[in-house]
């Protein structure tokens, strides 16, 4: 796998569920893989002060975010014996119930795939300059902060 090449992470709008199936299918020829681990982030209809979130509009400091994604990939490949790793994150509006983050790690064995996947998710949430505007059903909004 071309693990050193910077990859495009951002996708416009929601990540289609079909992308997950396609990604799995694309790895069936790589028979040194014995385990995939997948994390999917889905937009939750949080209720805040009596108002319900209907969508999150994501924006990012894209150039910096792409370089941090690359650093996270480099760190993950040096920490974990993974065969490959793919990350996709939405930009723009993603409605509740739709997917905004897709992390896909593969390894010979399950433990490494799972640990690496978790590492990616935690690093992305903590260190990538992505911002989320939570839009309520009444079209007001507030800015999301990761917990």
């Amino acid at each position: 796998m071309d693990k050193k090449k910077p990859k495009k992470v951002f996708v416009d709008g929601a990540i289609p569920p079909e992308k997950i199936a396609t990604s799995i299918a694309n790895h069936q020829s790589k028979t040194n893989i014995g385990a995939h681990s997948i994390f999917l982030g889905q937009i939750r209809a949080d209720e805040i002060d009596g108002k319900t979130v209907s969508a999150i509009e994501y924006s990012a400091y894209e150039e910096m975010a792409e370089s941090i994604f690359h650093e996270i990939r480099e760190a993950a490949f040096s920490k974990f014996d993974i065969t490959c790793a793919h990350i996709y994150h939405s930009l723009g509006e993603v409605k509740t119930g739709e997917l905004c983050l897709f992390v896909f790690t593969s390894s010979a064995h399950r433990k490494i795939a799972i640990e690496a996947c978790n590492y990616f998710v935690e690093e992305i949430k903590a260190n990538v300059p992505i911002f989320g505007k939570e839009i309520f059903e009444d079209e007001t909004h507030q800015w999301k902060v990761n917990k």
Binding site: G41, Y58, A60, Y61, M64, H89, C100, L101, V121, I124, K125, A126, N127, V128, P129, I130, F131, G132, W143, K144, V145, N146
Partner: peptide, 10 residues
């Protein structure tokens, strides 16, 4: 110089 509010990815 970029002014960055708290990150909210994922």
């Amino acid at each position: 110089v970029a002014f960055l509010p708290p990150f909210a990815g994922g």
